[in-house]
């Protein structure tokens, strides 16, 4: 087992190997995660999402430079999709951030989604935990940008930035469920393109129509041009002011509790699924059902009912 103290003291080699165990689903990772959990919870976690090609990686590269100027230690988890055909992946986000590769206060880790939906692999959440325990002040998660389903980054980040570019749609794209609700900061990248002002106006209008309760954060639109760093200083400040806002009136604590609750529910769901399926797949009823499907007799809906009907859950005590 890895030495927990090496992780907490920030040793990159040990931290990286720990993240590897997590994504390989190595059984030993669980115990280490439990041990480092009390040492996490200090980092500011930012999620960056948006469609492919809007410039997320380049923007994060510029943000790293900005946060480094403020002497923050930065951890990056960049998630790219795994090929559904081969299971392999090209992880290319690092390419855009490679100028920071030799900076000992920047840790960049690419991850493949390995078949998990929503673009954010379950392992990414645990990897954030490791970087947090290693003492990184700000952790940025970049998610595979498939667009509207990427909202689950909100499930683990304190602040969510949604990157978009001018001229990509009729505005309706932006009202589709999820994207607009979860954004704390809207980043209009490549703002030198035509229609940038119109896009900014449209975004602001959408935001103003969001139901806002008194004392809630009002989402901000920031125009950037990541390639030359235009607007990035402002963007970094907006994230930090959102963090300052969260730090007032117990908002951050509340958010952390929500994240923890979702994490717990996810873990339980995974365990239930795993244990139930393991038991089910060896059961007689399940094997019989498979045979019936093979023989083209019974419909799958009835079969599923039959198989699940045989399951009784007895060792829970309801109040």
């Amino acid at each position: 087992m890895l030495d927990i103290n090496d992780i907490i003291s920030g040793d990159q080699n040990t931290g990286a190997r720990m993240i590897r165990l997590i994504e390989d689903r190595d059984p030993s990772a669980h115990e280490v995660l439990k041990a480092i959990y009390p040492h996490s919870g200090r980092a500011f976690i930012i999620g960056i999402t948006g469609s492919p090609g809007v410039g997320k990686s380049t923007l994060i590269d510029a943000l790293i430079a900005e946060f480094r100027r403020l002497d923050k230690k930065i951890g990056i988890i960049a998630v790219d999709p795994s090929s559904p055909i081969s299971g392999g992946a090209i992880l290319g986000d690092r390419l855009r951030m490679q100028r920071h590769a030799a900076d000992p206060n920047v840790f960049i880790r690419s991850m493949a989604s390995r078949g998990q939906k929503g673009g954010l692999s379950r392992a990414a959440k645990d990897a954030v935990l490791v970087l947090d325990a290693m003492g990184y002040h700000i952790i940025i998660i970049e998610t595979a940008g498939a667009g509207q389903t990427e909202v689950d980054v909100a499930g683990i980040a304190h602040s969510v930035g949604i990157v978009t570019i001018p001229g990509t749609g009729d505005g309706i794209q932006a009202i589709k469920a999820g994207i607009l609700e979860t954004g704390d900061v809207f980043i209009l990248n490549k703002c030198d393109r035509p229609d940038a002002d119109a896009a900014e106006f449209e975004l602001n209008m959408m935001i103003s129509m969001r139901p806002a309760s008194p004392g809630s954060w009002k989402a901000v639109v920031v125009k950037t041009r990541a390639l030359d760093g235009t607007g990035v200083k402002e963007l970094a400040q907006v994230f930090l002011s959102h963090y300052a806002f969260l730090n007032q009136e117990g908002r951050l604590e509340k958010k952390k509790k929500e994240i923890e609750l979702r994490y717990f529910q996810g873990l339980v769901t995974d365990l239930v699924l795993e244990k139930t399926m393991a038991a089910l797949e060896t059961s007689k009823a399940y094997r019989e059902a498979l045979q019936k499907i093979e023989l083209n007799g019974t419909d799958p809906l009835s079969l599923a009912e039959t198989v699940m009907g045989g399951i009784t859950i007895s060792n829970f005590n309801s109040p």
Binding site: S82, S83, I85, S86, G87, G88, A89, I90, L91, G92, R94, L95, Q98, A101, A102, S110, A112
Partner: peptide, 17 residues
């Protein structure tokens, strides 16, 4: 990638560091 590996592509002009 097509052989099922995860490939991190780090680009041109890399220093050994």
């Amino acid at each position: 990638r097509d052989a099922g590996m995860e490939v991190i592509y780090s680009g041109l002009h890399q220093t050994l560091d």
